[in-house]
């Protein structure tokens, strides 16, 4: 059976019929004595959304996941997880609808892969355990290793077993903490593909990751946490919020008087030359400014190599926000 066919078999998601958000977090705070793990955090995650949760070490990401996973109780605020209010009394019901894959998969090393999954299937009350385990293992391309002791598996393979375990219960929300940590690029790509298939099946993914390229590629929206929530939004929106638009102009040779030229060009706010000899122009609207810049360059007889819109990565956004916090702390 092909892997893709197996992926399609494993999860239902015919139950996702309402437009109610999968996760609603409202002014949630967790303190341990005098130490604040996270404070006043609010966001919503729609059903079927892949939501990236980013932040530096100690920012409160894991504590947030533990709180939403009903492992620890919030100090203040409220949340609704998979449509159920986050209260102590609702813990079992919430945990029945979610699955959490911690960064370290936490497998019983003296048990086989299948025995590990069988144990968790028992705890979730999964029916038709054998076929469910087979499908979960096929989804992570591990069906042939089901009889292997987990202690004999590489870190990457253990990570995949952890992922198979998270799939077993057909969860509405999956909390994945660094799911590609320790995986080689091919295995990481398979996990990304799997996350995409899950998204299309309506499973909500709450992805905690340090890999900003991964977040940018996979996530519909991201949140950046640094004890308080610094921002939430689509990566493109965040880039627009934080950075002014820019054009990168490359010419065959250096311009005679770029200052005079760009100052006189409509739509250009400021300019600088970068290390590679290109000119980076801050512009109000790239679609308006680019033709004006092209005309101005042609007008002074410059040989144009390229004019392109500068792309800020999610990493730029992340570093900008986290650096702001570092600077604020210094002050």
């Amino acid at each position: 059976m092909s892997k893709r066919v197996a992926w399609r078999k494993i999860w239902r998601k015919d139950s996702v019929t309402t437009e109610q958000p999968a996760l609603v977090v409202d002014h949630l705070t967790k303190r341990f004595g005098d130490r604040t793990a996270f404070s006043d955090v609010s966001f919503e995650v729609a059903q079927g959304e892949v939501f990236g949760f980013l932040g530096p070490n100690g920012a409160g990401k894991t504590t947030t996941v533990r709180t939403l996973g009903t492992l620890i109780a919030p100090t203040a605020g409220s949340a609704t997880v998979a449509g159920i209010p986050l209260t102590r009394a609702n813990g079992v019901e919430i945990r029945q609808r979610i699955s959490v894959m911690p960064e370290s998969p936490g497998l019983y090393l003296r048990l086989t892969v299948a025995e590990n999954l069988e144990f968790f299937a028992g705890l979730y009350g999964v029916r038709d355990v054998r076929s469910r385990i087979r499908d979960a293992l096929e989804a992570v391309n591990l069906a042939e290793r089901s009889g292997d002791l987990c202690g004999g598996l590489s870190k990457g393979l253990r990570q995949r077993v952890g992922l198979a375990r998270a799939l077993l219960s057909d969860p509405v929300i999956m909390f994945l903490d660094e799911p590609t940590s320790g995986l080689d690029p091919v295995a990481a790509r398979e996990v990304h593909d799997l996350i995409n298939v899950l998204r299309h099946r309506g499973v909500t993914i709450f992805l905690t990751t340090h890999r900003l390229d991964e977040a940018e590629r996979l996530c519909d929206r991201v949140a950046i946490l640094n004890t308080t929530l610094r921002t939430v939004g689509r990566p493109t929106e965040l880039r627009q919020q934080l950075f002014t638009s820019a054009l990168v102009v490359k010419t065959v040779g250096p311009l005679h008087d770029p200052g005079l030229l760009f100052k006189a060009t409509p739509g250009v706010l400021s300019w600088r030359a970068d290390d590679a000899g290109a000119y980076v122009l801050s512009v109000s609207d790239p679609r308006v400014a680019a033709p004006e810049v092209a005309r101005a360059l042609v007008g002074v007889g410059a040989d144009i190599l390229s004019i392109s819109e500068a792309q800020h990565s999610l990493e730029d956004v992340y570093l900008e926000l986290v650096d702001e916090d570092v600077e604020a702390r210094k002050r």
Binding site: L71, R95, S99, V100, P102, S104, G106, L109, L123, G162
Partner: peptide, 14 residues
């Protein structure tokens, strides 16, 4: 010690 406690506690077990 073997890091299995947290995954176990995230299940519906009471």
């Amino acid at each position: 010690e073997q890091g299995t406690l947290e995954p176990l506690l995230t299940t519906p077990i009471r």
